[in-house]
Amino acid sequence: MSFTDQAWEIFEKSISDYHIKDDVDTPVDNPYKAESLERLLYAKNWIDTVQWHLEDIIRDENIDPTEALKIKRRIDSSNQQRTDLVEFIDSWFLNKYKDIAPNNDAKINSETPAWAVDRLSILALKVYHMSLEAHRESASMEHRQKCTEKLNVLLEQKKDLSEAINQLIFDIENGKVKMKVYKQMKMYNDETLNPVLYQNVKNG
């Protein structure tokens, strides 16, 4: 089984497990062993799945503004957790391939393995929800047909992205691509870098 086939199975399990209760406050019950890549992938997709539904909730036109602000703060926190976990997955890959000496002509890919996996995780959610719409009996035939067409495009994207990720990992393993990771250094959550936050600290 390829790496992306394994990752997709884990993403599908995470999405399925979430939808047993379909509640953003459901605690994660990660079934994979500690420190394994499988556990990291499951945790990554669980964050994405919860955030997907938080994004749905906050778009309710009748939502109470106070509740909307709480959810917005929660989404901000979720984004930070997502970034931290992606970087942790990249650290896992860095450690796995630490003894591989890149070829003299090795290239640098514009995207690390974990950030490519991040896209695959989101794609699994798109496929799941578009499939629901494509088969929703209460929807019109026209709606289902349009969603089926979109689903087919998403499945083609899955095939292409999976192939690209597997090729990237193969090239890293064989010294054709050297893996280099830059921490994201997000500024909006840092009270020393975000002007609004550090002004609040100063004034407080």
Rank of each mutant, 00 (worst) to 15 (best):
M130V: 11
S78M: 12
D118G: 01
V196K: 15
L41M: 09
E191F: 12
A164G: 00
I58H: 02
K146N: 14
E61A: 11
S2H: 06
I108K: 08
T26L: 14
T4R: 02
A139Q: 14
L154F: 02
D48H: 05
L85P: 01
I58E: 01
N79S: 11
S131M: 09
S162L: 02
A139F: 14
L197Q: 04
R82M: 10
N79P: 08
N166G: 03
S121P: 02
W52Q: 05
N200K: 15
K202F: 03
I63Y: 04
V86E: 11
A34F: 00
I71N: 08
E156V: 05
E35L: 10
D105W: 11
A68T: 07
E111H: 09
P27C: 06
K96W: 04
S78I: 05
T83A: 15
A124G: 07
A106L: 12
R39W: 12
G204Y: 06
K98M: 09
Q81Y: 08
I63R: 07
Q184C: 11
F11M: 02
D90E: 10
A114P: 01
K13S: 08
I58L: 10
I57V: 08
Q199K: 14
S91K: 07
I15A: 03
D190K: 08
L155A: 04
E87S: 07
E12G: 04
R82S: 06
A139M: 11
K180W: 02
W8A: 01
F3Y: 03
S140Y: 05
T49C: 13
